[in-house]
Amino acid sequence: MNKMKVYQDLMRIVQDGGRVKHDDMLSAYTFTKTGGEADVLVLPESYAEVQRIVRYTAAEGIPMTVLGNGSNVIVRDGGIRGVVINLTRLDAIHLDGHHIIAQSGAAIIDVSRFALKHGLTGMEFACGIPGSVGGALYMNAGAYGGETADVLDHAVAVDSSGQLLQLNHSDLRLGYRNSAISRNGYIALEGTFALTPRHMPEIKAEMDRLTRLRRMKQPLEFPSCGSVFKRPPGYFAGKLIQDCGLQGTRIGGVEVSRKHAGFMVNVDHGTATDYINLIRHVQKTVKAKFNVDLETEVKIIGESGEVQDR
């Protein structure tokens, strides 16, 4: 890949050089504050731009990676080759009756606050989820007994050929931490959430309760990628890790949280390699003690080690 040619081509596609960058450190875009360089990073501001970028990379045979707000992802220290699309500029939220329509780059927390403002219930579970709408659609995000599938009516996505798709609830095939969007490699652009009117003080009371729980139980004082592992059938990942005596275990600058064993926190300039090594150590220890395989909920992407000449 001729990186500078791709950079120049994408500047023409989005017609704004300030939204195309090369050799940009992805640590600036992830919650863990880790990650190497992207060959070329582009921040589209319309669905049509996303479609054009997808079609361009497909036609040129250029690898493409989609990055939302970086809350549930670990980018390896070697960075990402090809083109990285960052969707955070697509962040509009608006109301249509009892439906909220939110673009994929909007924070799901902001959608829950928007619902509160308009006296609509159903999004309270999302008031503490740090991810984006796109991430919530991609993995059917959930917390405290609620999940995206409970309220998502339909979505807009782009497939690998650049075609715009309208996906209804049944099309999305939402399961535990997965969806048709993730299984088919689509790019989520928009979600429409069907909600119900409720008195604002009641909605706020529930959101306040969940926020208190989150502050008590989660290590919000350090950078992290959120919940690292999926819940294994019949178990809770955090409990298994705790029962292995792994809380406080540290590799490099990354530590298994002492507050919640399901989280790993960047306590001292940790790297993506530190995260990955600690994840592997936890998986190996839990397997040895309980014969349970922990599957990562966090998505690990990019290349290991230092960026090579290219």
Rank of each mutant, 00 (worst) to 15 (best):
A272N: 09
R198I: 02
S27Y: 11
N266Q: 13
K287Y: 07
T57G: 00
E303S: 14
R173Q: 11
S160D: 03
L246E: 00
C225A: 15
G119Y: 04
L294D: 01
A143Y: 01
A115M: 11
R19A: 13
D9Q: 10
G253Q: 08
D274S: 03
N140G: 02
K259T: 15
P63K: 14
A149D: 03
F114R: 09
L220T: 09
E147G: 14
F290K: 02
I301M: 05
A141D: 01
G270V: 13
T271Q: 11
N69T: 12
S71D: 10
G248F: 01
A102S: 13
F125V: 06
G82N: 04
K217H: 03
N178T: 14
Y47R: 12
R214M: 05
A288R: 04
Q51S: 15
S71E: 12
D110V: 07
G36L: 08
R183M: 10
G302Y: 13
V111H: 05
I181D: 01
D268H: 12
T34N: 06
Q103K: 05
Y235E: 14
A143Q: 01
E221N: 07
E147V: 09
R76K: 15
Y176E: 05
A58C: 05
Q103A: 10
M216L: 05
Y138L: 11
R55T: 05
R231T: 15
F125Y: 02
L210Q: 13
K5W: 01
N178H: 11
E221W: 00
Q51R: 14
V256Y: 12
Q247Y: 02
L43F: 13
T285M: 04
N291F: 01
I93P: 11
D274F: 12
T32Q: 07
L10H: 04
G36S: 08
V54H: 01
Q283H: 02
Y235G: 08
V292E: 01
N266Y: 10
K21G: 00
F290V: 02
L213E: 05
G78Y: 00
I53C: 06
G78Q: 02
I203P: 12
Y235A: 10
R198S: 08
A59M: 09
L210V: 11
E295S: 09
G35Q: 04
E303T: 14
K33C: 08
N72P: 06
G146Q: 00
M207N: 07
I101Q: 07
D110I: 12
V286Y: 00
A126G: 09
K204Y: 13
Y56A: 04
V307S: 15
T34M: 05
D96C: 12
G68R: 04
Y144R: 05
N277Q: 14
I13Q: 02
D293L: 06
H281E: 12
S304E: 15
L189A: 11
G262C: 14
A102F: 09
Q103G: 08
T65A: 06
G248A: 03
D208R: 06
A28I: 00
M1C: 09
R81I: 07
Y138M: 09
H118T: 13
M4E: 15
G145M: 12
A194E: 15
G134L: 07
S161M: 05
V151P: 06
L152H: 01
M1F: 10
V282A: 06
H118M: 04
V20F: 00
M1E: 09
A115F: 02
